[in-house]
Amino acid sequence: MAIKGNKVNPAKFEPSQIKFYLYLLPLAVLMGAPIVYIVCHAFKPMDELFAFPPKFFVSNPSGINFTNLFQQAAGSTVPFSRYVFNSLVVTVAVLILSVLISTMAAFALSKMRFRGKNMMMEINNLALMFVATAVVIPRYLTISFTGILDTWLAHILPLIAMPVCLFLIKQFMDQVPDSLLEAAQLEGAGAFTIYLKIILPMVKPAIATGCILTFQQVWNNTETSNLFVSTESMRTLAFYMNTLSGVGSVQGQGIAAAAALIMFVPNLVLFIISQSAVMNTMAHSGLK
């Protein structure tokens, strides 16, 4: 840690920083590579897509893949906008519900005391590591039994309890000092006020991270469209994009590349919106 005199955050470039850049820059290039690749790949014309050895950058960018994609989409019976709409409804609903459920459960598991608490955490951990393929058919049975097959609920309900989210958020909540809650308690705040006014603002970074993880899982999810929904107009964008790339073997490759870019853009937008919350992790936790 380069602490130079009193200048904790140097305004100007300091020679002592060079060694950090020496490590960070090459690694940053490695980490940034996939994004550059996705963008380049989507604009590659046919001959570059299939070039051997594969090329990383595009040399003659063309929009042919996107033209193919939209032609393909225009030919389908269900309008493209319907898939987008479906995906948006499902994603927003799951995002709100799952964050609400995870934070509430995490608060109870982290800061309250009652019998059966540890067992609940164990159940969550078991759910966390269970193989998803194994629960598909029992889930199908449950969904068809409750009669929500082919509805929005079939997309939303299976995804609202996210073990990963609860796990991460609970770990962050454990770090919130108890003395803060005690102080609020003395001022007369009840459990719900503490949850809303203290806990939620303090674990914002964890919530933002959870949001990104949840968004990814829901936005890219093809499973619910595949299994729990049979009406084409109730399926999501991710599912549609998946079917598109499977059409023609040669054209499909290019369409898949374009589709990957389109599916990726919302991820990026959400990330840029939430990045300040994610990155300022637990910097201002109120107590030393």
């Binding site: 509430m104 109870a108 759910a127």
Partner: peptide, 15 residues
């Protein structure tokens, strides 16, 4: 506070 989570997990995971 746990109730909604218990519902989701018991129906779609535990069961």
């Amino acid at each position: 506070f746990l109730l909604p989570w218990i519902f989701g997990v018991s129906v779609f995971f535990v069961y």
